[in-house]
């Protein structure tokens, strides 16, 4: 009986670790994308990676560590607020840029390893 509980315990914390590290990976990937992508409208997409996948995975991992407590409810509320506000904030920034006539980069854009960029053809 106790071995089953121990296995469940290890599985719970192992899964929490996988979620936390996966969330950290997605947050880092989003940040690299925001730094690397060529123009404002494409950077919005990279910021979205952090907002959705990164925050969901990290909060799920923390909820697994906290277990069935009030703390998990609070973490779920943090996740709910982020899930509701992040698309609104992203849309607000994008809409403000669009209303200010900021031109998006369209066509095909290539960035090779040597660092020479081409693209932006309409």
């Amino acid at each position: 009986m106790s071995t089953v509980l121990e296995i469940l315990h290890i599985a719970r914390f192992g899964l929490a670790g996988v979620f936390l590290l996966g969330g950290g990976f997605f947050v880092l990937a989003g940040a690299i994308g925001v730094l690397r992508l060529p123009d404002f409208y494409t950077r919005l997409h990279a910021a979205g990676v952090t907002d959705t996948m990164g925050s969901t995975l990290i909060l799920l991992g923390l909820m697994l560590i906290a277990g069935f407590t009030l703390l998990s409810v609070k973490l779920a509320l943090v996740g709910l607020f982020l899930f509701l506000t992040s698309p609104t904030a992203t849309h607000a920034v994008a809409n403000a840029a669009h209303k200010a006539k900021l031109k998006p980069l369209l066509g095909t854009y290539r960035q090779t390893r040597k660092g020479d960029n081409e693209g932006g053809s309409q």
Binding site: A29, I32, L37, T42, A46, P104, T108, R110, Q111
Partner: peptide, 10 residues
């Protein structure tokens, strides 16, 4: 985003 040769078609 993470591929070394980044090809975008916005």
């Amino acid at each position: 985003v993470l591929s070394p040769d980044m090809i975008l078609t916005p």
